[in-house]
Design a binder for these strands. Structure first.
Lengths: 156, 156
DNA sequence: ATCAAACCTCAAGGTCACTTTAGGGGAACA
DNA sequence: TGTTCCCCTAAAGTGACCTTGAGGTTTGAT
């Protein structure tokens, strides 16, 4: 609510068109607190243009397999005032770059071991590096999740 | 059903312990036809030890973001007889290796563009290469899915 | 013979990230 | 003044991937 309504602000339809994200998804992101809007007297959403960047960042982060909850906590670390600077984004994106780096490394390891491992039978053993590697990337729920909040997936 | 019951076959509990996968998950995989068992006279499941490898492969594939449906169709391509050879696994894994390769390339591209892009403001524009890159990996539903069955996520 | 531990089935519940549906209200333009 | 489009909310639906629960059977050690 540090928002000073401007005529150049975007409607949800504009946002959808410009970001390539469905209106329903924008609503959803807003419910989750990932983006922010003010309302016109008619209760229509209006978004500061900067929210476009937020949406873009959200989508990019998602493509890295980062869950929305993580994305939110990253975005929450940005200054809440409207004056988010280059430096803020860069700092925030650093963490994802590291994550990305790690992800690449794990995948490369996986790939390098695929030849020497998958056909050799060791895949059935706890000792197999490929199989164990999986635990570091493995998903709970769906999709690869490299981030924390790793509950032990089964308690034997 | 090409199964010749052996005393060395594993119970579902054994499978769970040795594969690190919950019993309920093994049941689930079996329902989906990803793994196979025979039954004792008391209707208890027994798994050939080779099923351990199948489970391992399933988990590894999942860590690459490959959906179970894809994994199933890959596993279905293996000889149904019990005599699955090294070469069969290697052949089947080839496809995933390519997928892996692609995944690494996309992530690397993403990483390389992160510096030059995320702080510059272009992220809010359709022209941003990083933002567009996202479309090539983007998920529908949850988690990155590089495989086919890409429906257009929003029809504007 | 008893009793816990392990197994069975089937149905329902839960999470994530959305989309769809249903039933409205307000705005822009000819 | 329409009428057409865009917007609103709340709730339910979807699909992938499991987990939990209820109620019952079997095994195996004492």
């Amino acid at each position: 609510m540090a928002t000073a309504p401007k005529l150049t602000d975007l409607s949800v339809g504009d946002m959808a068109a410009r970001s390539g994200v469905a209106i329903s998804t924008l609503h959803y992101y807003e419910d989750l607190g990932l983006i922010e809007s003010w309302r016109t007297p008619a209760n229509h959403r209006r978004y500061d243009r900067r929210e476009l960047r937020r949406v873009a960042v959200i989508r990019v982060a998602q493509s890295l397999g980062i869950p929305l909850s993580e994305i939110k906590s990253m975005l929450d670390r940005l200054p809440t005032s409207r004056a988010v600077r280059k430096a803020d984004w860069q700092k925030a994106s650093e963490r994802w770059k590291d994550e990305l780096e790690l992800r690449i490394l794990v995948l490369q390891e996986l790939r390098d071991q695929l030849d020497s491992c998958i056909g050799c039978g060791c895949l059935s053993l706890e000792a197999c590096p490929l199989y164990n590697e999986q635990d570091k990337v493995a998903s709970r729920g769906s999709g690869p999740v490299l981030f924390d909040e790793r509950v032990n997936p089964n308690k034997t």
